[in-house]
Design a protein around this nucleic acid. Structure first.
Length: 985
RNA sequence: GCCGGGAUGGUGGAAUCGGUAGACACGAGGGACUUAAAAUCCCUUUCUAGCAAUAGAGUGCGGGUUCGAUUCCCGCUCUCGGCACCA
């Protein structure tokens, strides 16, 4: 053993030793309990790994080493996801074939992982591009096909003109550009295979509730992506300009059935079938609009700030399902053709988008949902009433009642007598209370329901209050006779002053006044009377909250929730909608798994027989995408065209050279499906294959599946929160329903490693020239120091910047450990101090590694090392061994070296994880902080079993305590055992 | 806009069944060793005042509960992520 700590001298040696001796190989038939620990396998790009990538691999490496030492049979495999666009693009750029470049990239990745000393068993590695692997990817596709989950479609799909392939929704950025190249995708009708993931939408959603050990944000992202929305559908019959019924009708989807009576128009997406209806009078205009809408790209269409556009459909009217009213029909591209029914009911009063549209096209706004203020109470007495917002155009001020007792400012308001018309009643009250009789315009603005307690009468009340806008002709006031309890006077204020006053009061009882007032002012501005109020604060808008719905105008209403149920039952039906779309599974590219189907002369599709798998990719020189909607494979006639026959099970068997069909079976010509699968296919099930890599007969044997699934710990990047993790869960659930796997979910625990940013705060990227290469760090500091720093840098799941000069800290630590290890052993009994430090450390590390709290584990070992280092007569060999074992998962090379040096003959990584003994953990004395008025003024050290009286005596013996307590009255004191003695003076 | 995280020294971060804030590490400053430098070792390092003892302030901001709040409650700000004209 050298005196110097020299990682270069032993790292490679042990890496070779571990591989040669199968130190980490998995015994699948072991009787030990299993732990399946999995990394999201990398996509081997040409750039290699930077220091951010291995963070997750190091985390699972530590975790799997720990579990192995704890006695589990561990499966911690690694592989490569290498089909798909990026690999093909890279090969094209390098003027080579993807077969070659992928195998080179895999070699490079493998090397980089190897020098980190990660505990993969490389003899158990998968690549999605291996024929023996994708044979089973094709098999799973066929199972989906046979179950009716794969269908051929010619619907317009996302087409990337640059990548020359169709893409799934999941392959797009949120702005509608291609995730690969940033090009705007087009909608293009294309023959394609689609997987019915929507059949599993509900299972994918409810399954999330069975995954308590997944990060919440991942589950939330998936819920968003699936986008379940429960609502109602209503059918609007259509009539022509003469009121004659048309054959077609219009079905709309809404989550706000309670607003049905507020519908003043209906609107369809440009894609909607109605657009081509023969009854339309302004066909030219409507089709022109459709064309211009199709030309808009996703960015333009999805830009909410963009003004809404649309065209009225002349000659066709919709019949309101409840009122029978004939209402106008529009085409507008703010309606999404692919969601719901592609048609919506327009409720300007209660939907912001409809409001904006209605304002632009002068469509009436009809309010049917009214704000509800305060909590519902028992035995409420119903009252009708209202209030007035009084505006004097001459002074541009509003009249309000200022109460003399508390200075509050309120609207002029009053109750309406039984039998009296509300409009007239409120007008009368407003005049009488304000004394302002010369009103030229009096208009209803809104209604509210307010719950309150009337102190004077001692009753709970709910008031239906109508708010009116009153525009004065003149502000001459008549003298008002007020009752003693009407202790207020009229004051004039600007709209902003009144609003500020109410906002300051922060009185929930005023909420509906603020709601009323804003609308009244907005209306005054709209009518051209108020020219000074800020239009931003007083902008007219839609009321989109739930409230009270009046099914008949002016009649006491029901809640939105009740109304949705009632209206849906009466006029429509309940419907559930999902945002998630079926999975576009065809790629018009070379580098992917061929879809194992063939077509006969009539383009009837047949699955290939199991014996035909794998359908291998032909090796070719040219594989550029064609852009025609077929993959380059379509041009390889010797591959495309096969002779075969339909077997008994309906699948097709091809006839190879020297073979012939069974007698009596008709031989036909077939053409292969030329599309290939998307890059996500192989990664949707690879975790299953690791368990039974070399099984030629099944994708996994029943026994191994039963024993090894599900994955116990799955670790990877946050970027896979939706796509990969939805696809994999989807296939797993399909395999579950087919009886091939026994669990409904594939991954029990999911953890995401945080990103490591460059030290400049940006993402590490060639583009910014800020990439730190792990090979360089390892060359300088050694693999163990690198690994430890990756663990130490921050909590595992937290994004954090890389620090170039940080690795030196863990390197120094290892050098100090080395010094300790090579020092002479202490003979005889270990000191109590060392035992206590070690056992505390065992406890801390055991909990810490289990919880992925690696950063605090590293720091804990540093603290423990300090205790060991300061022992003047050294530490025993047993203590050194325990310390090495604790460190072994994080620093596998150095600890292996020390372990052997200390006389062990088998690998430290197969040794048993140390157990702590509670008896070493108890302290014999405790430190109590003394707080005086909440501030720590002293600490006392006393025997751990001291009682309160003893503590108190010691506390008051402290000079620092006496300084504060002498001659002062002690108001309160208490002792929180083992922690705090607190005194209040 | 809706939903979900986060905010602590010069830096990365530690401590949350409420109980001595700043562990551990980097960096910085000082010292030892050395002809010198590197490496190593020791000391200091939240801010303000003070030679010091010490005092005051302090966990994004404003309130509240409590003997005591980084931790719990209410109201905000900023920031990162997911979804977004999804009716």
């Amino acid at each position: 053993m050298k005196q110097e700590f020299d990682p270069k001298a032993f790292e490679k040696k042990w890496q070779d030793y571990w591989q040669e001796n199968g130190t980490y190989s998995t015994n699948f038939e072991s009787s030990k309990p299993k732990k399946y620990i999995l990394d999201m396998f990398p996509y081997p790009s040409g750039a290699g790994l930077h220091v951010g990538h291995p963070r997750g691999y190091i985390g699972t490496d530590v975790y799997s080493r720990f579990q192995r030492m704890k006695g589990f049979e561990v499966l911690h495999p690694m592989g490569f996801d290498a089909f798909g666009l990026p690999a093909e693009e890279y090969a094209l750029k390098m003027k080579t074939t993807p077969q070659l470049s992928v195998s080179q990239n895999i070699q490079r990745y493998k090397q980089q992982l190897e020098i980190m000393g990660v505990d993969y068993d490389w003899s158990n590695m998968v690549s999605t591009t291996d024929e023996q692997f994708y044979k089973w990817t094709q098999w799973i596709f066929l199972e989906c096909y046979k179950k009716g989950l794969a269908y051929e479609s010619n619907e317009p799909i996302n087409w990337c003109p640059s990548c020359k392939t169709g893409l799934a929704n999941e392959d797009l950025n949120s702005d509608g550009t291609c995730e690969r190249c940033g090009t705007l995708v087009e909608k293009k009708p294309l023959r394609q295979w689609v997987l019915k993931i929507t059949d599993y939408a509900d299972k994918l959603l409810t399954g999330l509730d069975t995954l308590p050990l997944w990060p919440d944000f991942v589950k939330e992202s998936q819920r968003n992506w699936i986008g379940k929305s429960e609502g109602s559908e209503f059918v609007f019959k259509l009539v022509d300009a003469n009121g004659n019924g048309l054959e077609e009708s219009l079905t709309v989807f809404t989550t706000r059935a309670d607003t049905l009576f507020g519908v003043t128009y209906v609107v369809v997406a440009p894609e909607h079938a109605l657009v081509t209806n023969s009854a339309i009078v302004n066909k030219h205009e409507v089709l022109g609009y459709q064309e211009s809408a199709f030309k808009k790209n996703e960015i333009e269409r999805s830009n909410q700030t963009l003004e809404k556009t649309g065209v009225k459909v002349d000659g066709v009217f919709a019949v309101h399902p409840a009122t029978g009213e004939h209402i106008p029909v529009y085409v507008a591209d703010y309606v999404i053709g692919s969601y719901g029914t592609g048609a919506v009911m327009g409720v300007p009063a209660h939907d912001e988008r409809d409001f904006a549209f209605a304002k632009k096209y002068n469509i009436p706004v009809k309010k049917v949902v009214f704000i509800e203020n305060g909590d519902r109470r028992e035995n409420e007495e119903f009252r009708n009433g209202g209030c007035g917002v009084i505006f004097d155009p001459a002074t541009q001020k509003y009249a309000v009642a200022k109460w003399n007792d508390d200075g509050r400012v309120l609207l002029f308001a009053g109750g309406v007598d039984d039998g009296e018309d509300v409009h007239d009643g409120v007008l009368r009250e407003v005049k009488e209370e304000s004394g302002l009789y010369d009103i030229k315009h009096f208009e209803w603005v809104d209604t509210a329901y307010a719950h309150y307690f009337n102190k004077a009468k001692n009753v709970n009340r709910v008031a239906r209050a109508e708010c009116y806008l009153a525009i004065l002709n003149s502000a001459d006031a008549q003298e008002v006779h007020r009752e003693p309890h009407e202790n207020f006077e009229l004051v004039w204020m600007s709209a902003q002053e009144i609003l500020n006053h109410w906002i300051e009061k922060n009185d929930s009882g005023l909420h509906h006044y603020i709601h009323f007032f804003k609308q009244a002012v907005a209306r005054a501005i709209e009518l051209g009377h108020d020219a000074v109020s800020s239009s931003k604060v007083f902008a007219a808008n839609a009321f989109c909250d739930d409230g009270i719905v009046e099914l008949e105008s002016g009649v006491n209403g029901i809640t939105s929730e009740e109304a949705r149920i009632k209206i849906t039952e009466q006029f429509g039906k309940k419907v559930v909608n999902y945002k998630i779309r079926d999975w576009t599974f065809s790629r018009q590219r070379y580098w992917g798994e061929p879809i194992p189907l063939v077509f006969d002369a009539n383009h009837k599709a047949y699955p290939l027989h199991m014996s035909e798998l794998p359908v291998t990719l032909p090796n070719v020189e040219f594989y550029e995408p064609t852009g025609t909607g077929e993959s380059p494979l379509a041009n390889i006639s010797e591959w495309m065209n096969v002779e075969g026959y339909v077997a008994e099970d309906g699948s097709v068997k091809t006839i190879k050279e020297g073979e012939s069909a069974p007698t009596g079976v008709a031989v036909q010509k077939f053409t292969r499906e030329s599309n290939t699968m998307p890059g996500w296919a192989g990664s949707s099930w690879y975790y299953i294959r690791y368990i039974d890599m070399n099984n030629d007969n099944e994708f996994i044997s029943k026994e191994r599946e039963q024993k090894w699934l599900p994955v116990d710990m799955y670790v990877g990047g946050v970027e896979h929160a939706t796509r990969h993790l939805i696809y994999a869960r989807f296939w797993h659930k399909v395999l579950f329903d087919l009886g091939f796997v026994h669990t409904e979910e594939p991954f029990t625990v999911l953890k995401n490693q945080g990103l490591i940013m460059a030290s400049d705060g940006r993402k590490m990227s060639k583009r910014w020239a800020n990439v730190v290469n792990p090979d360089d760090v390892i060359a300088m500091f050694g693999a163990d120091a690198f690994r430890m720093f990756e663990l130490f840098i921050a909590p595992f799941d937290q994004t954090t910047p890389w620090q170039d000069d940080g690795v030196v800290g863990t390197r120094r630590f290892l050098e100090r450990v080395h010094k300790l290890m090579i020092a002479d052993h202490k003979e005889g009994e270990e000191s109590a101090e060392v035992l206590k430090a070690l056992h505390k450390s065992i406890k801390k590390l055991t909990d810490g590694i289990e919880n992925f709290a690696f950063n605090t584990c590293v720091s804990d070992l540093m603290i423990t090392l300090k205790v060991l280092e300061k022992q003047e007569d050294g530490v025993t060999v047993e203590a050194k061994k325990i310390f090495a074992q604790l460190l072994a998962p994080m620093a596998p090379h150095a600890t292996e070296e020390w372990w052997r040096m200390l006389g062990e003959e088998t690998s430290i990584h197969n040794s048993a994880w140390p157990q702590y003994d509670e008896k070493y953990l108890v302290d014999d004395e405790m430190t109590i902080a003394v707080q005086i008025n909440g501030k720590v003024r002293a600490t006392v050290v006393i025997a751990a079993d001291a009682d309160e009286a003893a503590v108190r005596e010691l506390v008051y013996a402290q000079e620092a305590v006496q300084k504060y307590t002498t001659g002062v009255e002690i108001k309160k004191e208490m002792y929180i055992p083992g922690k705090i003695y607190t005194i209040v003076i």
